[in-house]
Design a protein around this nucleic acid. Structure first.
Lengths: 104, 104
DNA sequence: GCAGACCAGTTTTCACTACAAACCATAATA
DNA sequence: TATTATGGTTTGTAGTGAAAACTGGTCTGC
């Protein structure tokens, strides 16, 4: 069953990065989240969070909407259908690979 | 249960790299493997495989023994107890994180 | 009314890393 | 003697993640 292991090479790197995996896992449960909420939840620095969100957006996995809450900017993030699908695929792929034979 | 997600930040990067995850998964099942066997199984290039093995060795996760099979060099790789433990920990950690809430 | 602190992010910088290509030493082959 | 194959290692390079520095706007004290 090394087929399962071989698929690891093709793992979605966008999702595979722990920080981003965290983000999509969170976004998968909340319908929508703002920047500071995500920062608190993940513990990432702002710069880091910003960069990861941009990357997720470029991949089409999250949609980012900028608005104003009162006078302050507000960045709202939401998982797209593509993002949901990507996360699902990633989970299944990894799950299969990690389950294949429990050592010897 | 975001505690599970937060732990993702601390994932062992040595194991997390797909190519190396493949390697340790294979090594976890075979007691010992030579360079070319690993190359065939993983599909990695020689250079790549060499580099990843060196990294795994530096981490103390695999033991590499060089010998001669007849007149040709032979590189034998074997998962160390530390490597087994690391893989186990990685699997559990990731499993927990990926299982926490299945969306919505 | 303006200097400085604060808010919500973005851009820049930098060290590291994975990958592939080039290389190396030896051995069989023509 | 070249040439090719074996079993790898070293080198070059583009890409990446993390933190620091920066930006544009707002509020506060004086």
């Amino acid at each position: 069953m090394n087929k399962n292991l071989r698929t690891l090479t093709g793992l979605d790197r966008v999702i595979h990065e722990p920080a981003r995996l965290m983000l999509v896992m969170i976004l998968a449960t909340v319908e929508s989240a703002d920047f500071l909420f995500l920062q608190r939840e993940t513990g990432l620095t702002k710069g880091n969070l910003s960069a990861h969100l941009t990357k997720l957006e470029s991949a089409g996995y999250v949609k980012i909407e900028k608005m104003f809450k009162g006078k302050y900017p507000l960045t709202l993030c939401k998982l797209t259908p593509a993002g949901i699908k990507a996360l699902d695929g990633y989970r299944h792929q990894l799950d299969k690979a990690l389950k294949s034979r429990g050592r010897g």
